[in-house]
């Protein structure tokens, strides 16, 4: 792993941004009983608030299901648009948190707290500064 590129925040402490990418089986969501869905929403809500209170939250979003995705590439110089996500895997990118933390160890602690680590996989990727 290349060393994450640290930079200094306004207080002179090192800070880095890390993307927490939540990959999960999105077909599980509509099959969940409503109580379980509400529970998951509550867990994400609490997690988001904890990040905000810690001053670590930069941005977060939940994405529409992968079926709404389109891919675009140039084929012989002409744009080609296809329906669906880039990779047809069972686990799809379903949302992300962009966080600002002093180091990767702190980022991994937040990744472990993310409810997504329980029902899917959380990928932590440092942002290139």
């Amino acid at each position: 792993m290349p060393a994450p590129i640290g930079r200094r925040d306004k207080d002179g402490k090192t800070a880095m941004q890390v993307m927490l990418l939540i990959h999960a089986d999105e077909s599980a969501w509509p099959r969940m009983p409503e109580a379980e869905r509400n529970a998951a929403m509550a867990a994400y809500g609490a997690y988001t608030e904890a990040l905000r209170a810690a001053g670590a939250l930069v941005n977060a979003n939940r994405l529409m299901p992968a079926g709404t995705a389109h891919t675009v590439r140039l084929v012989n110089g002409a744009p080609q648009v296809l329906d669906g996500p880039y990779a047809e895997t069972r686990e799809q990118l379903g949302g992300y948190y962009l966080i600002e933390v002093p180091d990767m160890a702190t980022a991994l602690r937040w990744a472990a707290r993310c409810p997504g680590a329980g029902h899917g996989v959380v990928e932590a990727r440092p942002v290139m500064a």
Partner: peptide, 20 residues
């Protein structure tokens, strides 16, 4: 209570705090 739940790593503890 919400802050504690948001900081929990263990899903069982998180559910307990969210009164789930």
């Amino acid at each position: 209570r919400l802050r504690a739940a948001g900081l929990a790593t263990d899903p069982a503890v998180r559910d307990f705090l969210l009164r789930l």
